[in-house]
């Protein structure tokens, strides 16, 4: 089964303001995006499991215009706060890369 790192063109994270981090997965090919969306693998529950957060804390929006999924989570610590590890929130995407998606390439 292919992994997200093998089928997506972009997988990234960034702050959405100092209290949220937002994670995007983009596909260049609309057909591939639709196929991934149809598998139902990319859900709030997936993010909850990967990041150890509550499902209700995950705002997931599939964005057909951009062939993209966007998930927004509350940051563990506000940006720049005591114990923050990632002020820009730019390195929180990696757990998604090895998620397997049951599509045929």
């Amino acid at each position: 089964m292919p992994k997200i790192r093998e089928i997506a063109q972009i997988c990234k994270s960034k702050n959405a303001g100092p209290f949220l981090v937002t994670i995007d997965i983009l596909f260049e090919d609309p057909a591939r995006y639709r196929a991934v969306k149809a598998t139902g693998v990319i859900t709030e529950a997936l993010f909850a499991k990967l990041y150890g957060v509550k499902e209700s804390d995950v705002l997931l929006t599939p964005y057909d215009s951009a062939n993209a999924f966007k998930a927004t989570l509350p940051r563990q610590v506000p940006a720049g706060g005591i114990g923050d590890t990632d002020v820009y929130g730019a390195q929180q995407h990696a757990p998604l890369l090895d998620v397997e998606v049951p599509i045929n390439l």
Binding site: K14, N15, A16, S65
Partner: peptide
């Protein structure tokens, strides 16, 4: 890609 930049909702 940039349209998704730093926003909680796309």
């Amino acid at each position: 890609n940039f349209a998704l930049h730093e926003n909680s909702s796309p």
